[in-house]
């Protein structure tokens, strides 16, 4: 397994216009990043477009990556997640919330046991476990699957206002717990 230091080096080279370094990042990270885009878009064509857009942003913005402030994998995930969310918003999140394939592929709330056991992962897991199940589930649905408030409301069979306040309360609790 490569260390994040490799990624930081590669991002530094990309910032200097090195296309081979971009390819090296692609080879290491594209499966992971494509998975992230697929979890949100559930459509290979759309996810491929987003990954292309994501790598274009990486190419253009690698100079903004600050190795002192975070790790490379997180930075790359964020770029692909935001690009995926933009694409999901642009298509009006028109994928019906009763899309059966969504149910099949949803990350189960119990899956938090699988969160990486590094320091950051352990902390997040402990904090998520302290949340009421519904709050936890809403946050995971939003982050992992890019679902909007109304979509989560349908999924959980709850009124929109309730879901909004669950998520908000969940985030407030997380903030307290994480800092």
């Amino acid at each position: 397994m490569q260390t994040d230091d490799d990624l930081k080096d590669l991002l530094g080279r990309v910032a200097a216009g090195d296309r081979d370094a971009l390819r090296a990042i692609y080879l290491r990270q594209s499966t992971r990043l494509f998975g992230i885009a697929m979890a949100i878009l559930r459509d290979r064509t759309a996810a491929a477009d987003v990954l292309q857009e994501g790598f274009l942003r990486v190419w253009q913005r690698a100079g903004q990556f600050d190795p002192e402030r975070g790790d490379g994998a997180t930075w790359l995930s964020a770029i692909v997640r935001y690009a995926s969310l933009d694409a999901a918003r642009a298509r009006g999140r028109e994928i019906p919330t009763d899309d059966p394939s969504l149910g099949d592929t949803m990350v189960e709330p119990e899956a938090i046991g699988l969160i990486a056991a590094d320091e950051e992962g352990k902390l997040l897991r402990a904090c998520l476990e302290r949340l009421p199940a519904a709050n936890r589930q809403g946050i995971i649905m939003a982050f992992v699957h890019g679902l909007s408030h109304p979509e989560i409301a349908v999924k959980l069979g709850q009124p929109l206002g309730t879901v909004k306040s669950w998520i908000r309360r969940g985030l407030l609790n997380l903030r307290e717990c994480l800092t």
Partner: peptide, 29 residues
């Protein structure tokens, strides 16, 4: 927040992108 929540990304199953995607990216850059 990105740093705190990033571990959630490890819950997502990995999936290989279409084989021609790198060529498209290379053209785009």
């Amino acid at each position: 927040w990105e740093r705190h929540l990033a571990p959630l990304n490890t819950l997502v199953p990995q999936e290989a992108p279409p084989p021609d995607l790198w060529a498209r990216i290379e053209r785009a850059v």
